[in-house]
Amino acid sequence: MHDQPLAPADFESIEDILLKYGDDHSVLNLAELDGYFAALVSSPAQVDVAEWFPAIWGGQNPDWESADEAKQFIDLCVRHMNAIATQLAVNAQGFKARFEETEHQNQPLTLAEEWCFGYIRGAAVGNWPQLPAEQAEQLEKISWCAEQDNFELPADLDVGLHQQRVSAIEPAARALHDYWLAKR
């Protein structure tokens, strides 16, 4: 039950709950939650639900409409996190981040800012220690994108450079997962 991948309707439920209870201090969308979970399952040590769940909400759990609503959301989160963990452990090359997509100057454009911001949030909750230079460089590929503001893309955006940087994020996440997995 807790290792079944989510269906599209499950992802919609997660997104609805994030919108319903989210604020400026919480995870706001599925892309950010996906990055958050990718970092948590890649952490040097397992992070307890009592730590990672309130951090989704900026440290304070929502005033749930019902216990069933809270349970359903937690169950969906655990299933999604387990699916990411399994993917990274069993077939890391097949790992795909849930980046957002948009169009810029009539061209498709991948936006990774929210995913990367979630990843950095997850690394902080996972209490990652200082990394060796090689792994710090991998984390920098992710944190660089987390600092970008994709709400208003500049007209002169270098789309090629942007896509090149975005394409480095998934390999960086895989490398960081492999590094910490070898240390556990």
Rank of each mutant, 00 (worst) to 15 (best):
L33P: 01
D34L: 03
Y36I: 00
A39P: 02
A39D: 06
A39F: 07
V41E: 00
S43V: 04
P44F: 14
P44V: 13
A45D: 10
V47R: 03
E51G: 03
A55Q: 13
A55C: 07
I56T: 04
I56Q: 05
W57M: 07
G58Y: 09
G58P: 11
G59E: 06
G59D: 04
G59C: 07
G59Y: 10
N61E: 15
D63A: 13
W64H: 06
E65T: 14
E65A: 13
E65K: 07
A67K: 04
I74L: 14
D75N: 13
C77S: 09
C77A: 14
V78R: 06
R79T: 01
H80P: 00
A83E: 13
A83N: 07
A83K: 00
A85N: 09
Q87Y: 03
Q87C: 15
L88M: 03
L88H: 05
A89C: 01
N91R: 10
A92T: 12
Q93I: 05
K96V: 08
A97W: 08
A97E: 04
R98D: 09
E100G: 03
E100Y: 03
T102E: 12
Q105G: 10
L109N: 12
T110F: 04
L111I: 14
A112G: 13
E114K: 11
W115H: 04
C116S: 13
G118R: 01
G118Q: 02
I120Y: 05
I120K: 09
G122I: 09
N127P: 09
W128C: 02
Q130F: 09
Q130L: 14
L131Q: 06
P132S: 00
E134P: 05
E134F: 09
Q135W: 09
A136S: 10
E137N: 11
E137L: 07
Q138S: 04
E140D: 11
E140A: 15
I142C: 04
S143C: 08
C145T: 14
A146G: 14
E147I: 07
Q148N: 06
N150T: 14
F151C: 08
